[in-house]
């Protein structure tokens, strides 16, 4: 192991439980494989060879909400889709986070009309909003890292 050969016998390391749990959560956050519209294609680019989001512990996109921690709302949410989205959110086990990817999901974007929900925060609580139409993969990665920062600051007393 690289670390032990550098530092010798480490023995016991003392860390705060909070930090360890938060660290673990950020390092294996599995997003739900769930694309709605244009942003989903950029989300696929982020997963694919050039950007490779598995560097951030997002090796697996889980199609089942029961196995995922992070919902990336990638695209416009219609009035017809909204109940489905909420149901998916309810099916995710705690702790769970929501990334609102793109303008349409965040605020309706250019589609200010009868069919589109003006911001997915009307349906599910959102942790991080990512602007852009669609956001570049770099922006999505930035959003994910912002979420990680946020998760790292979560307090023990909030979970229990």
């Amino acid at each position: 192991m690289g670390l032990t050969s550098k530092l010798g016998e480490l023995g016991i390391v003392t860390v705060k439980l909070e930090d360890t749990v938060n660290w673990a959560r950020t390092r294996a956050m599995w997003p739900m494989l769930f694309g709605l519209a244009c942003c989903a294609i950029e989300m696929m680019s982020t997963q694919a060879s050039v950007y490779d989001v598995s560097r951030f512990g997002m090796e697996l996109m889980r199609p089942s909400p029961r196995q995922s921690d992070l919902m990336i709302v990638a695209g416009r949410v219609t009035r017809k889709m909204a109940p489905v989205l909420r149901q998916l959110y309810d099916q995710m086990p705690d702790p769970k986070w929501v990334l609102s990817m793109g303008d349409c999901a965040s605020c309706g974007g250019v589609f200010n009309n009868y069919a589109i929900v003006q911001g997915v925060d009307e349906i599910v609580p959102v942790d991080v909003y990512i602007a852009g139409c669609p956001p570049r993969p770099e922006q999505l990665i930035h959003g994910i890292m912002t979420l990680h920062e946020r998760v790292k600051q979560e307090r023990l007393e909030d979970w229990v």
Binding site: C107, G108, N112, N113, Y114, A115, Q118
Partner: peptide, 8 residues
């Protein structure tokens, strides 16, 4: 039928 515009 109205467009369904919401104030931004």
């Amino acid at each position: 039928y109205p467009l369904g515009y919401e104030t931004v």
